[in-house]
Amino acid sequence: MQVENYPDLKANQNFLALQEELTSTENKISFARQAYNDQVLFYNNKIQMFPSNIIAGMFSFKEEEFFEVEDKTEKEVPKVSFN
């Protein structure tokens, strides 16, 4: 058995864990948005490029729009406070 005399600061650890979850949640949202836009880009490129553009023209595929947040306030990170 080993022993160690460095008590963990529980409060600090919990706070770091919360901070990690907040960062990660934020990242997951932005990466999901990024992945969607990547797909749209790929699709739009296919529509424009030979030879897939022939099929796209025949069945009249339309270009998709990128996902963008227009409302600036929606993009902001929610504030977390402990008061």
Binding site: A17, E20, E21, S24, K28, F31, A35, D38
Partner: peptide
């Protein structure tokens, strides 16, 4: 290791 799990999931989402 929660951070590792989170980071892997983020990249999984980005890679679709």
């Amino acid at each position: 290791h929660p951070q590792l799990f989170n980071v892997v999931e983020e990249m999984r989402i980005a890679a679709n």
